[in-house]
């Protein structure tokens, strides 16, 4: 299911442009990271993908659905959206009920729901915590419950809004695993992130936004080495990219594997 955004403009208030002419196509199964400075329009952009915001002008289509023609609740069958703060959605007496909420809303059959929920709990390592009240879990685990509650909806497109913010190393690894698993099953993943190393290691396409426009769009290798352009939107290249440049590696490297390979080649 492709996402087509054409000449999207959006203003929260007259004269305050949040998005200023964005055109993008995101193909089914792509893993896309959206980066850029605070206030660049990242959240505003992804909120258009499930109809939470409607374009001031231009259009957004999910498959052949124009987002202005369908309710958010209907679009939820195509686009899952993991919000930044889990506490703004958790309300059930236990984890299981919470995770079942989405797929039930979508009207799936009971055994499909059971399967999806089981899978989502496994992926987020929540198995064994089904009967716990979400509010008895730590914020880190509440984040995983929120994640599971969207995964269980089995949507072809999944959006994450800053999933790694405030998370520790173990949980970032967990989230990376979830994204890898979604990729394997052919889902489209769109993630807003400030964590550029996370972005370099887990995504195949990077879109840098600045002042409501697309600044850069391409593979991490094409995009994340462009230090000066990225600086316009307050982003540094990944650690190893900066290091590679400084020690004079020929090509742009972004992951540890690439860096070590380039290093080995240089050593001969």
């Amino acid at each position: 299911m492709n996402i087509t955004i054409s000449d999207l403009h959006f203003s929260y208030a007259p004269n305050v442009k949040a998005l200023n002419g964005i055109s993008l196509t995101i193909n089914a199964g792509e893993q896309v990271a959206i980066i850029g400075q605070n206030g660049a329009g990242k959240t505003t952009l992804v909120r258009h993908l499930n109809g939470l915001l409607k374009p001031t002008s231009g259009s957004v289509s999910i498959g052949d659905w124009d987002t202005t023609k369908h309710s958010v609740a209907k679009l939820a069958s195509k686009v899952g959206y993991v919000f930044q703060n889990p506490d703004e959605q958790l309300f059930s007496k236990d984890v299981l009920t919470e995770v079942e909420f989405g797929p039930k809303n979508l009207g799936y059959k009971k055994n499909k729901i059971d399967q999806l929920v089981k899978r989502a709990l496994e992926l987020t390592e929540l198995t064994g915590k089904q009967e716990t009240n979400p509010y008895d879990l730590s914020p880190t685990w509440r984040k995983m419950v929120a994640l599971a509650s969207i995964l269980a909806m089995d949507t072809p497109i999944v959006i994450f809004d800053e999933p790694t913010t405030g998370q520790d190393f173990t949980n970032i690894t967990r989230i990376a695993n979830v994204i890898a698993e979604l990729k394997k099953t052919g889902k489209t993943v769109i993630t807003i992130t400030h964590d550029i190393d996370f972005c370099a290691e887990n995504f195949e396409r990077v879109i840098a936004l600045s002042k409501g426009q697309v600044l850069l769009d391409g593979s991490p290798r094409e995009i994340l080495g462009q230090e000066e352009i990225l600086a316009q939107t307050y982003v540094d290249p990944p650690q190893l990219t900066r290091l590679g440049k400084k020690i004079g590696l020929q090509e742009t490297v972004i992951t540890p594997q690439e860096f070590l390979k380039a290093l080995a080649q240089r050593a001969g």
Binding site: S71, A73, Q89
Partner: peptide
């Protein structure tokens, strides 16, 4: 917004709206 994104219907008749109350009011 978060609950609508999980497929919760909030528009419609009184019954639909009443059902949407708990997932919104509790958080």
């Amino acid at each position: 917004d978060a609950q609508r994104s999980r497929g919760l219907e909030t528009e419609g008749n009184l019954f639909v709206r009443a059902k949407a109350l708990v997932p919104i009011v509790l958080p």
